[in-house]
């Protein structure tokens, strides 16, 4: 059963929850966790293929949000986008043993997401849309996108991995992002 209080949290905007976190309201953090932890766990696991590492990063991101929520400017970018970018950055850093991203992640990484992902229905709709857009890409383009997004490889690293000429890889990725932009944002 969903209580009235819980229903109110489900409707609250990210911006209002952030404001409450700034006021040290733990329940607002819990609400944001409920809202976005699934989406983040999925991408963290896909990148790391290591549940424990994924959950460590997940917890860390929300704890960082708890401590530094005041630095997050909801008018400049969306929280869901920021969470996705940070989760991916951290997972790839870990995968490739880079320096962990440091400093002002909250104020520096402005991410503007066209869709509002505050409702879980919206997340599910977007998931269906993204999956079908990727399914519609030619096989090599899709593979290149996945190597870049989920493994953090650059053009030349993808070329090395697949054995394709660098120029081919560049064209492939360029065409793929163009198609995705058209399919997902038209």
């Amino acid at each position: 059963m969903v209580t009235a209080e819980k229903r109110a949290e489900l409707k609250a905007t990210d911006a209002s929850l952030i404001d409450r976190i700034v006021q040290r309201d733990e329940s607002a953090l819990a609400a944001l966790y409920d809202r976005y932890s699934g989406m983040l766990t999925s991408v963290l696991n896909r990148i790391l293929r290591d549940t424990q590492a994924a959950e460590e990063i997940l917890q860390d991101i929300f704890y960082q949000l708890w401590r530094n929520a005041a630095q997050f400017d909801s008018s400049r970018g969306s929280l869901s986008g920021w969470l996705l970018v940070i989760a991916r950055n951290r997972a790839i850093s870990r995968l490739r043993r880079h320096n962990p991203a440091s400093g002002d992640e909250l104020s520096e990484n402005t991410v503007v997401v066209a869709s509002n992902l505050e409702r879980s229905v919206a997340q599910q709709q977007l998931m269906a849309k993204v999956k079908s857009a990727l399914d519609n890409l030619p096989k090599e383009q899709r593979a290149a996108i996945e190597l870049a997004y989920f493994e953090g490889l650059t053009h030349s690293e993808i070329a090395q991995r697949t054995g394709d000429p660098l120029g081919t890889v560049k064209t492939r990725l360029r065409t793929a992002v163009e198609t995705l932009k058209r399919d997902l944002h038209s």
Binding site: A30, Y33, D34, S37, G38, M39, T41, S42, V43, N45, R46, I47, T51, A54, E55, L58, Q59, R76, G77, S78, G81, L84, V85, A87, R88, N109, T110, V111, V112, V113, A114, S115, Q123, L126, M127, K129, V130, K131, L134, I145, E146, Y149, F150, V177, L180, K181, L184, H185
Partner: peptide, 24 residues
């Protein structure tokens, strides 16, 4: 910032996995 948002949503291509309750 807009491109980051367009690319960020590719995360939704990942298979759905829920975190274990212990994390929260």
């Amino acid at each position: 910032a807009a491109a980051r948002g367009r690319i960020a949503i590719l995360a939704f291509a990942a298979p759905t996995v829920a975190p274990s309750p212990g994390v929260k």
